[in-house]
Amino acid sequence: MLDWLPPSISTVGGEIDKFFYVIYYITTVVFFLVAGTMIYFLIRYRYKEGREVKYTHGNTTLEIIWTVVTLVALIVLALVSKPLWSKIKQELPPSSTVVQVTGKQFNWEILYPGPDGMFGTEDDYQIDNLLHVPVNQVVHIKLKALDVIHSFFVPVLRLKQDALPGREIMMWFEANKPGEYEIPCAELCGFGHSGMLGKLIVHSAEDYDAWVKSTWPEN
């Protein structure tokens, strides 16, 4: 089933997929154990006139065992999930590239700070739906929303974050494969939600320089 995952082009994508796989294997095994046991019981104990029935109200030891085992397994899963989650959503590795992305009905408004690295100055460059970033570099995204909630979703980066009006959320990612990818909006934002779509363009180092040169020719 997990073959359907889109390719991963970010540094954390593989780690997320790893979790996906681990949970996938565990739950598949559990499912087949449960379903198998059930089907076995259904066949083994199907109705027969006069069959001897086990008259039992349960077994406390068993109850304790399966409670403790599932509890421990799930807590362990939570604990091992935590570092990756923190890495993606709580930590912010340093970066020299910051881009502001603002969700609005029904476009992603992308704002580049320009060579001075500051927003709100003359050399800012704004364009809808085109997010240019360099490959193999940490990129910071300042995520905002103008009107309603949108959700910045890049399947190949395994990245999703809601954009909230009135708030700025800092995110980061590091893409490791040049190419063009889609940035759909993942949170219902009105009748144009379907089709609200930006493009992530991951440039190789040279391409990125070229793009910077062509966008800010004065510098």
Partner: peptide, 30 residues
């Protein structure tokens, strides 16, 4: 993170119930 842990914990009672349903089928006359 906090909500992840509590959510994992709340899956436990559901698991308990499932196991008990299997236990009910075990040795019955279905």
């Amino acid at each position: 993170t906090t909500f992840m842990i509590s959510t994992m914990v709340i899956a436990v009672p559901s698991a308990i119930k499932t196991f008990n349903w299997l236990g009910t089928l075990w040795g019955g006359n279905i």
